[in-house]
Amino acid sequence: MSKVRVAAFSISLDGFGAGPRQSLQAPLGVGGEGLHEWFLPTRTFQRMVGGGEDGSTDADDRFAARSFENVGAWILGRNMFGPVRGPWPDESWKGWWGSNPPYHVPVFVLSHHERPPLEMEGGTVFHFVTGGIEASLRRAKEAAAGKDVRIGGGVSTIRQFLQAGLIDEMHLAMSPVLLGSGEALLAGLDLPAMGWRVTERVGTAQALHVVMARSG
């Protein structure tokens, strides 16, 4: 059965999924790069950036690899796609990832402003959805054709889907860093009351991997 899931989403020990003062120079916010130190050395990441078979093959890599399995479509918030705000001035911004993004499936980007679909190398096509999270999920499920839909972030987007009860499974990688401020992922959310329970936890030197599922 297909799922709507969050996978390999990194948060700090104090609960932030991005640091403060995000910008073109600091897309993850100040200090936010420290959230992903568990992911960067993995073979999964190295393959994404052309590193071949280099990289670790430990538990961190296994969780990284799992995050891409059976994914038929992604949903991203506009901030995850890029730093442009307001109406699109033109179509020159094509994401953070270069000509061949790591998705290789349809990606639905939440936006208040229309923009034509953007076809990239490797099978990634960005679709810009102005109808909100429900509309993006309908289109993503149709495009996924029975596979999973991955909610890639950022924090605000995941919170919207959580609050609407639209996520089935969530894997968080808790990195041993403190950010002090930024975008808090779970603040004010009563996860047990929302039906969430922990189903798996694995600790490594770089992260505590926690998998949760929602019942009902």
Rank of each mutant, 00 (worst) to 15 (best):
P20W: 08
G55M: 09
P102F: 05
I133T: 14
S181E: 15
G86Y: 10
L118K: 01
D148T: 04
K94D: 06
V4I: 15
G52Q: 10
A173C: 14
K147D: 11
V107L: 02
W97E: 12
P87T: 09
P192M: 12
M170A: 14
T204Y: 04
M80Y: 00
L24G: 12
A73R: 08
V109W: 02
V125C: 13
G146N: 09
L35N: 02
S2Y: 04
A73N: 08
R66L: 09
L189W: 11
M120C: 07
Q25N: 11
G86W: 10
T157Q: 07
G98P: 04
F81A: 00
F128E: 01
W74M: 07
G34M: 03
E53A: 14
D58A: 08
G82L: 05
H171L: 13
L28E: 13
D58C: 09
F81S: 01
H171D: 15
V177L: 09
A135L: 04
T57H: 02
G86K: 11
T204E: 03
E134T: 13
T157L: 12
P192Y: 13
F45C: 04
P117I: 02
M174C: 12
E119W: 02
M120W: 06
R214H: 07
R5D: 00
G95D: 03
A65V: 02
S67Y: 02
V107S: 02
A144M: 11
A8Q: 11
P20Q: 08
A213W: 01
L118Y: 01
P41S: 10
A64L: 05
P89Y: 07
A145E: 14
V155E: 01
I11H: 00
E37Y: 05
G123L: 09
V210P: 08
G165V: 08
F81H: 09
G82M: 05
R197N: 07
M48V: 12
P101G: 00
V202K: 13
A64P: 05
E91D: 15
R47C: 04
M1R: 11
Q22H: 01
M174F: 14
N70Y: 06
A8L: 10
H171V: 14
L40V: 13
V49R: 13
A140W: 10
F39A: 13
V129H: 01
F9H: 07
F16K: 04
V4S: 01
R201H: 13
G153H: 00
W38M: 04
L137F: 10
T157H: 06
G77S: 02
Q46Y: 06
G131W: 03
L137M: 08
V149D: 08
V71Q: 03
V109C: 11
A18R: 03
A205E: 15
H171R: 09
S56A: 14
E119P: 03
S215V: 06
I151D: 02
